[in-house]
Amino acid sequence: MDERGLHRLIGTIIDPERLEDDCAVIPCGDLLMVASTDMLHETTDFPAGMTDWQVGWMAVAVTLSDVASMGAAPGQVLLAVGLDRPERLQEIMVGARDCCVAAGAELVGGDLDAHRELTLVSTGLGTVAPEHLVRRRGARPGDVIAVTGPLGEAEAALVGYDHHRKELLEPQPRTKEGEILGRAGVSAMMDISDGLALSLYDLLAVNDCGFSVDTARLPLPAGVPEDEARELALYGGGDFELLFSAPPALLPVPGVEAHVIGEVIPEWVVLADGEPLDRRGYLHEWNG
């Protein structure tokens, strides 16, 4: 059983439409508030050699990336820390604060507890005008598919390409780009941290159309042999880019470096170079 299978179970308990996007959407006066929460554990989510400052940075980055995917302006972040050793706390909190500052958010509080394994839970809030909110649902046949930067860099670092360690350990949430794309009127958008292939299938699940990618157009990790780089770009997790669809005439969008990688098609299928794309990437799984 993987996490997406468990989402279907949760959808029998709460409105399944609330599970379709990277954030919950909550009315907030004339605006909408978006809210996301993420849990990270040391053994599964923090690569070996990571500093405590980088741990704090990553815990915030994962949540602000979700906020960005909705076209929202980042607002506040809360960080709960299940702490294994008290001497780690200061650098974790400084890293979390620094990520907030870099992304235009504010670290405003959280919770603290003792825990055998370092565990961080971040909650991010943002706001957006209703007309600029972007959901995963909304792609239309004829739209182009695009991403905001290179794919596969984090996974490249994990398999030994050390010149990509910074992209792995200090991911940059695309908050500025998310806001700009929302105001520009893109039709659908999501964060791509679980890998391109899985993200395309996530879009497929909530749209009545399909997605066709040309792998020759993928922005690949530098310094990696082309065939391996293409595999990493399709299936590697840990990239905090945005995946979006938009009418062709909308691009280029000033202020956003977008790479067109394919198009939205009428058939309900995910294709790469005309063939069905394997549904795999970064998934939490339970065995037994």
Rank of each mutant, 00 (worst) to 15 (best):
L19A: 10
P27M: 12
V186G: 04
D273Q: 05
P219Y: 04
D208E: 15
P150T: 10
P130W: 07
E263S: 14
V256L: 09
R116I: 00
A72F: 06
H259C: 13
L78R: 14
A24I: 00
E117R: 11
S245I: 00
L242M: 07
E87Q: 12
D162Q: 13
S122L: 02
A105F: 11
C28E: 15
V270E: 06
L151F: 10
D111Y: 14
L218G: 11
D143E: 06
A184Y: 05
G182K: 02
D66Y: 00
P130T: 02
A188W: 01
L64M: 08
L78V: 00
A129S: 13
A103F: 04
E241A: 03
M39L: 14
R135K: 15
I145R: 02
T215E: 12
F46M: 15
V144N: 02
R217Q: 15
R8W: 12
V25T: 15
V253W: 03
S36Q: 03
L133D: 11
W57D: 05
R137Q: 15
H115D: 08
H132T: 00
E231L: 10
G262D: 04
F211C: 10
V224Q: 08
A205Q: 10
R97W: 13
Q90S: 10
S187E: 09
V25A: 15
Y235Q: 04
A154M: 05
A72Y: 04
G5D: 14
L133G: 12
R97L: 12
N207M: 07
E3F: 12
V62T: 14
G210M: 06
T127N: 02
I92F: 10
W53P: 01
V260W: 03
D143N: 14
A103M: 13
N207V: 06
A96K: 02
A129V: 00
F240Q: 08
T175R: 07
L203D: 05
Q54W: 02
L40M: 15
G142L: 05
I92Q: 01
E177D: 14
G182H: 03
G109T: 00
E170I: 08
H163E: 14
T127L: 11
A102C: 01
E170N: 04
G255H: 08
A72H: 03
G49H: 11
P171Q: 10
R140N: 07
A146I: 04
M33F: 02
L151E: 05
F211T: 08
P16T: 01
V81G: 02
R230M: 10
G126C: 06
S193H: 14
V256T: 09
E20H: 13
A73E: 11
A102D: 09
L220V: 06
L169I: 00
M50F: 12
D84L: 01
P141G: 13
H163I: 00
Q172F: 01
M189L: 08
D21E: 08
L283S: 10
L120Q: 02
W53A: 11
L220F: 09
T43C: 09
D208I: 00
S187F: 01
I192N: 03
I26D: 06
N287K: 14
E91Q: 15
P173F: 09
D162N: 10
G182D: 05
A184R: 12
P130N: 06
P141E: 13
D45T: 11
E285D: 06
G142C: 06
A146L: 13
V128P: 03
A139F: 04
G288T: 07
G236V: 00
